[in-house]
């Protein structure tokens, strides 16, 4: 279980970017952070990953305080799919995915047969086996995102942290990524993600946290939290949340519609 308790982060004293952040994330759950631009979502992810040092509060996995772990151990627990991730130089896809395994190579060694198998397995799992020998830069945005998810899975961490996994993707690729997120949570991964699409919370997430000005203002099940009133308040524009006639698992899927003019 990933647990954040009273996390606070600031660059300058007395002007915190994040404050009083607390949440828990069980394995098999998907927690989606929603909120306007510049509200600290990415910063929160970075604090959890230890890329930014929290000013106070704690992040723990089970009984282990994450901040005390060296990188290699941390990577065994948590993997990161960052937004707008780049790979410099024309690496092949399988080499990019293999990068997720490098920290567990024996010192000075190369990929063991086990590592190759893990890499092949995650690529099969995400249905990108056919891209293995292609160059990463030549792939489409959707394919690149799949490769980066594969790279995070290759780490074999059970917590995956994704920063806007559907950003800059077309409709079908967004759907593919959401489907992957759903399957991964079914397989017992804990996923913490951010999104600019409240609809995605209904489609793929089990929990939602609404963030504004560096705080979590509301959190809970998507049905309870992603409401007309909450979203209108959160984003400062009129938004209607309404049910559709699409029934999945016995309940109607909801959508969020921004109202341009009354």
């Amino acid at each position: 279980m990933l647990k954040a308790k009273d996390v606070r982060f600031q660059y300058k004293k007395n002007s915190p970017i994040l404050r009083d952040i607390s949440f828990e994330l069980e394995y098999g759950q998907v927690l989606c952070l929603l909120g306007p631009n510049g509200t600290g979502k990415t910063t929160l992810l970075r604090c959890i990953l230890g890329l930014n040092k929290t000013s106070s509060g704690s992040v723990s996995i089970g009984d282990i305080d994450v901040s005390s772990l060296p990188e290699r151990k941390k990577a065994a627990h948590m993997a990161y799919v960052s937004q707008s991730s780049k790979v410099s130089f024309p690496y092949e896809v399988r080499d990019v995915v293999m990068m997720g395994r490098v920290a567990s190579f024996s010192p000075g060694g190369s990929a063991a047969p086990r590592d190759v198998k893990i890499v092949n397995d995650v690529m099969e799992r995400l249905e990108i086996g056919g891209l293995a020998r292609r160059r990463f830069q030549e792939l489409s945005g959707g394919e690149q995102q799949m490769v980066l998810i594969a790279r995070s899975l290759a780490q074999q961490a059970r917590i995956i942290i994704m920063d806007e996994p559907t950003a800059n993707l077309d409709f079908s690729n967004q759907t593919r990524i959401l489907r992957v997120i759903r399957t991964l949570s079914d397989d017992g991964f804990a996923i913490l993600m951010t999104s600019h699409y409240p609809d995605h919370a209904f489609l793929a997430c089990t929990k939602v946290a609404l963030m504004r000005d560096g705080r979590i203002v509301n959190h809970g099940a998507p049905d309870k939290i992603v409401t007309t009133q909450n979203l209108t308040q959160l984003y400062g524009i009129p938004i209607r949340v309404t049910s559709t006639d699409v029934i999945v698992n016995g309940s109607a899927i909801k959508v969020c519609v921004p109202i341009l003019a009354y």
């Binding site: 230890g50 290699r72 991730s85 790979v87 130089f89 990019v96 920290a103």
Partner: peptide, 21 residues
């Protein structure tokens, strides 16, 4: 450290989250 140097191409933050010092 040849493989570790490869991972740096993914960006420093990403390399850290992949367990590279």
């Amino acid at each position: 450290f040849r493989n570790h140097i490869d991972v740096l191409s993914a960006g420093e933050d990403e390399a850290r989250t992949m367990g590279i010092n």
